[in-house]
Simulated assay, not measured.
Amino acid sequence: MEMQIAAKSGKVACSNCPLRSNSHFREFTSEELAFISSFKMGELTVNQGATLLMEGTRSTHLYTILSGWAFRSKVLEDGRRQILNYALPGDLLGLQGSLLGEMQHTVEALTPLTVCVFDRNRLGEIWERFGSLAFDITWMSAREERILDEHLLSIGRRSASERAAYLLAYLQQRLDKLHNLAKADKALPLTQTHVADTLGLSLVHTNKTLRKLAQGGLIRWMDSRCEVLDIDGLCKIAGWSNVTPVSRPFL
């Protein structure tokens, strides 16, 4: 798909970043904030459905999501797609391509997206000058690995109902931490095709599974959106209880 990305007029000052007003994210020191402000090149807006990063390409930039949702995916030659994970405000995109030479997955905008843009060539300065920010990047990478571990467990061992319950509970928990920053009301901006491609199930099987959860009063499915009605019930079905930190880092 042709990329539909445009430079955003103006620039949100890092000192006024809406992410900083959310207690889910840790506060920067004055020195860290000054560096991040100089590290940030600008902002981009990305249309829903457009590709921000393409598998197999090299990117000169890193991105932090300022608003909206994205997802990471890989596609086989015959078009079958596996969605690996979802990215929400505060998540860092493009680190893999910066450190390993090229992207091993694609990043697509699930909703209209605004991202902060950083110069990849200055990434080494973080390790040279700011050990705390270097730790933050390591923490975010370790967190991503932990999330992928849980997703792999779902695909490998959970039943269809357990997979769907885990995915929806996990995403709802993340959305709840962000309050209004994800710009998706209180519903998850997913189609059943997105769910199927995440769970590794056929669309027919996914539809039956989601209908079962809806009949149990756990979710309500709308056009391209899912409202979670009982997150505790979903967690119980999935056998999942995730303890999240009081605050987490971002760039």
Score class of each variant (00 low, 15 high):
208 K>G: 04
231 I>N: 14
198 T>Q: 12
143 R>W: 03
122 R>K: 03
108 E>G: 13
207 N>T: 13
225 R>W: 05
24 H>F: 13
40 K>M: 12
42 G>F: 05
16 N>W: 15
10 G>Y: 03
106 T>A: 00
158 R>P: 00
59 S>Y: 00
199 L>C: 14
51 T>C: 14
85 N>C: 11
25 F>S: 11
11 K>E: 13
231 I>Q: 13
109 A>G: 15
178 L>H: 00
122 R>F: 11
223 D>G: 03
52 L>H: 13
144 E>L: 11
49 G>E: 08
190 L>G: 01
237 I>R: 01
122 R>L: 12
81 R>N: 06
79 G>E: 01
232 D>E: 12
113 L>W: 07
76 L>T: 05
66 L>F: 10
246 V>I: 06
197 D>Q: 01
20 R>L: 15
30 S>E: 08
153 L>N: 01
113 L>M: 11
11 K>A: 15
206 T>Q: 06
66 L>D: 09
164 A>N: 05
195 V>P: 01
61 H>G: 03
84 L>C: 12
62 L>N: 07
66 L>Q: 09
236 K>C: 06
163 R>Q: 07
130 F>I: 02
243 V>Q: 02
205 H>Y: 06
86 Y>Q: 00
65 I>N: 10
40 K>S: 07
9 S>L: 15
15 S>V: 10
215 Q>K: 13
195 V>W: 01
186 K>I: 04
25 F>L: 14
176 D>P: 05
45 T>L: 05
41 M>L: 12
28 F>I: 06
174 R>W: 12
201 L>W: 04
94 G>A: 01
83 I>G: 13
146 R>V: 06
250 F>N: 13
89 P>N: 08
228 V>C: 00
5 I>L: 07
77 E>D: 12
240 W>A: 05
91 D>Q: 12
33 L>V: 06
9 S>K: 14
117 V>G: 06
184 A>G: 10
107 V>H: 10
116 C>G: 14
183 K>Q: 15
5 I>G: 04
57 T>W: 00
203 L>D: 01
64 T>L: 07
47 N>P: 08
143 R>Q: 09
248 R>Q: 14
159 S>Y: 09
183 K>M: 06
165 A>P: 02
96 Q>F: 04
228 V>L: 09
